[in-house]
Amino acid sequence: MNMNVLVVDDYQTMVRIIKNLLKQIGFSNVDEAADGKEAFDKIQSKEYGLIISDWNMEPMTGLELLKEVRGAQAAFSNVPFIMVTAESKTENVIIAKQAGVNNYIVKPFNAETLKSKIDSVLAA
């Protein structure tokens, strides 16, 4: 698939894992960012068809990134956004949904879950 995907996580190993799984699914254009701020800079300068982000990062969290993206007066404000995180409390899911997340994957996840959530988000 030619779509550009941005993977955001402060754990380099997790970035590498998600990138490899995305490659297996068929995404070949995958960029990475180590936190929300770096991600937002990239989103402003390049068109992405999907963002997959962790939550717990400094200095800008995944939730803050989501709010920045959704609040921007720009074409990218509606880009599909999947949160992939170990933060699995009910209030986290609700707040992320209220902020405009398209889907939410709790770590540890399997390849099938990642694929099904991506399919679901891109089909919507």
Binding site: D9, Y11, T13, M14, I17, N20, L21, Q24, A86, K107, P108, F109, N110, A111
Partner: peptide
Amino acid sequence: SNIYVACGFQDI
């Protein structure tokens, strides 16, 4: 793919 996913232990 299963090994990739299992390596997620490091993050957790």
